[in-house]
Every structure is written in structure tokens, then in C-alpha cells.
């Protein structure tokens, strides 16, 4: 929950910067064996963080650089 809220704050900060609109999407090249999608639009990341523990772990590794 805290991670999802933190990500929402990040998105609000990006919107406040007034960058030109586009559809930024976090993507990866993992196989279907993983439970998380290969493409997650940034506005859907908070939802994925709350609902998908494997995606939460991936984001944790990306942000904190902790090895799995």
C-alpha cells in the first residue's frame, strides 16, 4: 500500500512538471511464466503493486537494487 501511494505521488509530481503527453509504459522481456504483465502503463503501476506480489518484488529490485 505504501509503495502504491509513493508511486502515485511520483506520478502527480511528473504531471506537475507539465511534460508533453504520451503513454509511458514500463516494459520488460520476461516470459509468460511470470505473473506480471510485460507492459504496465505508468498509471497502472500502483494497482499492480497492490495486487501482484511478483510485480511488487520486481519494482523493489528496480528501485532499491536489492538482489533477489
Amino acid at each position: 500500500m505504501a509503495a502504491a501511494e509513493a508511486f502515485q505521488r511520483y506520478q502527480e509530481a511528473k504531471k506537475a512538471e507539465g511534460r508533453p503527453s504520451s503513454k509511458p509504459t514500463l516494459v520488460n522481456l520476461s516470459t509468460r511464466a511470470k505473473t506480471y504483465p510485460n507492459a504496465v502503463p505508468l498509471d497502472e503501476i500502483p494497482k499492480q503493486l497492490e495486487e501482484n506480489p511478483e510485480f511488487f518484488e520486481l519494482m523493489k529490485r528496480i528501485v532499491t537494487k536489492e538482489k533477489s
Partner: peptide, 8 residues
């Protein structure tokens, strides 16, 4: 994983 942000 190899990860990046793209513009869909």
C-alpha cells in the same frame, strides 16, 4: 529482467 520505459 531487462526493463525500460517506452512510449506506447
Amino acid at each position: 529482467d531487462y526493463v525500460w520505459v517506452m512510449d506506447a
